[in-house]
């Protein structure tokens, strides 16, 4: 099924999405990959706040190429999600709802998704040029020193993803 969704996600929207649905996302997403996840978790361990309010937000596992003059962002496809698995349950506990990446997730992540009513989308890996066209705004909001791994606040329009794991734990990769 094809659906259009406006971000941020709500619990009702998440309940209406099922593994296998093609979804076009419009709204704000935050980029974060390995180094940003590590730092976010360290920040929490020090008892400090995350650099953005993660409640009901969607995080895109992305480290783009640099933008040329006149471009919003460079190539911007998903990275392999499993490297974030170690950090993910903590972020879901804090209210993160959506994740965009590619590839498998650990059983711990899946049970945390069920518990916290989260959803995992995949974007097509290796289609970074095409996906970058759907990103209309992009601004580094934290961890600028991490270069490509900094956290960006991005506005996407009709960003094409597919629901791989839904909030009930149905998994499209396990057909």
């Amino acid at each position: 099924m094809e659906k259009k969704i406006s971000l941020p996600l709500t619990d009702e929207m998440i309940s209406s999405l099922h593994a296998g649905d093609m979804v076009y996302l419009t709204g704000t997403v935050y980029s974060a990959r390995d180094a940003a996840h590590k730092r976010m978790i360290e920040t929490l361990e020090e008892g400090k706040e995350l650099p953005f309010d993660i409640r009901f937000q969607t995080v895109y596992y992305l480290g783009p190429t640099p933008a040329r003059e006149g471009q919003v962002i460079g190539s911007a496809g998903p990275t392999t999600s499993s490297r974030m698995d170690k950090y993910t349950p903590k972020l879901l506990d804090l209210g993160m709802k959506g994740m965009i990446g590619k590839g498998k997730r650990s059983p711990e992540v899946i049970s945390s998704m069920i518990k916290n009513h989260g959803i995992y989308f995949a974007a097509v890996g290796g289609a970074g040029a095409l996906l970058s066209r759907q990103i209309k705004k992009s601004k580094v909001i934290a961890y600028e020193d991490l270069g490509t791994e900094a956290i960006r606040e991005m506005y996407v329009e009709d960003f094409p993803v597919i629901v791989v794991i839904d909030s009930e734990g149905n998994n499209l990769y396990q057909r």
Binding site: G63, T65, G74, S75, G77, G125, A129, L130
Partner: peptide, 24 residues
Amino acid sequence: QILGILEQNLEIAADDSIPICQDT
């Protein structure tokens, strides 16, 4: 459908000077 997206991606990369994939 996915393979079509990948072909389109290659065209966009060449036409708009955007790397094919962000992991260069």
